[in-house]
Design a protein around this nucleic acid. Structure first.
Lengths: 340, 340
DNA sequence: AAAGCTTTTGAAAACGTTTTCGTGTTGATA
DNA sequence: TATCAACACGAAAACGTTTTCAAAAGCTTT
């Protein structure tokens, strides 16, 4: 088992100085062609590769970017990571992934350990708990230290940084209008509790769409789910209490669960009730009937986030201007809604 | 925007030496309580945190572990990552994730860039292309350099290292036996092409189960799918050509697609045909009917892999003995199979 | 042969730590 | 008062690079 070879060892073997070796390997024309060839041949033979850590220490950049997300077992986030990875890799960066597991404390710890020199910048989506607590000191600290940060999907207005978000309100609006246009008269909403920013926004879009179409908002048709694991119980209640001919759910799972309950109760989809979900994941595509959804374009979000971050990392003087990119959702029509 | 403060700066401000500061912060009793207090107070005030890169360079370990997987948009792999993250984090390690996208070249590049000092060890599952090519020089090189490596799920016999695998053959056997015990007489297999090691193993288990139950293997009932995107076409053919009352599919997608086709053709599930899939992902749980599957316990795999790796990383003298842990699958009974 | 170039090389500092070893100071002991 | 520990601190090397600057060596030109 041979350990990695270093510049120093090459220098010693070839009886030249370390600087000569370093320059020779980087094709500096300070060094004669002869020695360059000699050094390079030797380096190749011994499979020399510069030590990243040493290079990082010297050059003050690591070529790593840190990604902190709440959960990785979540299709949307993995699509975003895919996008990030793709552009990061193409620009020579590695991706360090940390999971907060929706916990504030873990998010803080992750940020602190990564911020101590391991990475050149952050891409993150904050945890539910952080959104609830509204404590963003860790983010503030990081940007104060001059570390580039781009937030995506679950962002905070209190932090000045680049952002990439989905146009949640508009997407929801679009979904509800689609239900209306295909003939739905009473449309229910299955959403999350309000502190989840995207849930709130989607709720807003829902209401606006109804109002703009002179349909009036009936609070009885809105259920806000806290305990996602047992969402079926809550959704059952909705079916017990009221009737409706359209459902807009803020995620796939809620939509599928609702469809299943509807089917058990003998409703036909989409003839009796139409369904639309948010997030175009694997579930929607393979549900029966297949679910009409709003695609969030996670890959694109990841790509844009990575592009923005790397731009900030690599620019000479830091500018204090921040952008927020808004990704438009698009409606994927499938079989859970009526055709126009 | 204040940059991070260093030992040198603290030393200067407090008019002591760098070594004194370093020792004071690490509670060395070489330093008087007075100066220790003073230094620590100052460090706290200026929020001093040691630079990871410098520490890594000095101490020859990075507290990072590299994970290379073929695809992240794949539920099984994300569960494994979850498991890895969990134990890695609890032991003070970060996880650097790289995706090979099932490409040999990308896998090689990823390994090479990470191996140059960025990480203390690897956890990986090889790409399809690598399995096809059977070229493992990059793995061999890494282990020759003394870098700990643990492979999971898609492994190679040619490389001597720690491994964590699913007992694919046994799981498949178990699945097919379950079909037999619940009354299936003619069982079809939907699998992948042979170079995918796990597909091959599962095929083996299928055949063994049939043979052991005196049912004979009918090659007409076996289809090997290359183009996953268009698996429905191939599966249709199976339905066209033959009839059967049980289906074992080597993944969720094949199983769901087959179920859908069966339903379209008017078969009742599980009365007319029973289905079992491999991998207990989200699809199985939300399919209709819900799909009986073999759980692969990805989280556990990740945890074990990380434990093995960290053990190797942290042991004093390297031992050349390698283990391979086998994770038992377990059958999750749902509604796509008949009750016993 | 001296002066002035150009070409080629090497010494050393720097990045931010950790750690070994040496040294100066203090107070106690002989 | 000389000796010796114990204590408190600092200098310096080391990790593996990159880069600046100086110097040496080889030329050409007078």
């Amino acid at each position: 088992m041979r350990r990695r070879i270093t510049l120093k060892q090459i220098a010693k073997e070839l009886d030249v100085s370390i600087s000569t070796v370093s320059k020779a390997l980087r094709e500096s024309k300070e060094i004669s062609q002869d020695t360059r060839d000699k050094v390079q041949a030797f380096a190749k033979l011994y499979n020399y590769k510069p030590n990243n850590i040493a290079v990082s220490l010297k050059n003050k950049h690591t070529k790593n970017i840190g990604v902190i997300i709440p959960e990785i077992v979540h299709h949307f986030f993995t699509t975003v990571i895919s996008g990030i990875e793709k552009v990061a890799n193409s620009k020579g960066y590695n991706v360090i992934v940390c999971l907060s597991n929706e916990s504030f404390d873990k998010e803080v710890i992750n940020m602190e350990t990564l911020a101590n020199g391991s990475i050149d910048g952050f891409i993150m989506s904050i945890s539910k708990e952080t959104q609830k607590k509204k404590d963003f000191h860790h983010l503030r600290e990081v940007v104060n230290q001059g570390m580039p940060l781009v937030m995506f999907d679950r962002v905070s207005d209190e932090i000045y940084c680049d952002k990439v978000i989905v146009d949640d309100a508009r997407g929801a609006y679009q979904a509800v209008e689609h239900l209306i246009h295909t003939g739905c008269k009473r449309i229910a909403l299955i959403t999350t509790v309000d502190y989840v920013s995207v849930g709130k926004l989607r709720t807003l879009g829902y209401k606006n769409a109804l109002l703009d179409n002179e349909m009036g908002v009936d609070e009885d048709l809105i259920i806000k789910i806290e305990d996602i694991e047992n969402c079926d119980k809550e959704i059952e209640k909705l079916f017990d209490l009221d009737n409706f001919d359209g459902v807009f759910a803020v995620n796939e799972l809620f939509a599928l669960t609702a469809m299943k309950i509807a089917q058990e109760r003998g409703y036909r989809i989409p003839e009796d009730i139409s369904f639309i979900g948010f997030t175009d994941g694997i579930l929607s595509k393979h549900a029966s009937p297949t679910l009409t959804t709003l695609a969030q374009h996670g890959i694109e979000m990841g790509e844009i986030a990575a592009d923005m971050l790397i731009e900030k990392i690599e620019e000479e003087e830091e500018d204090e201007s921040f952008r927020t990119e808004i990704i438009r959702t698009s409606l994927i029509q499938r079989d859970s809604t009526r055709k126009i």
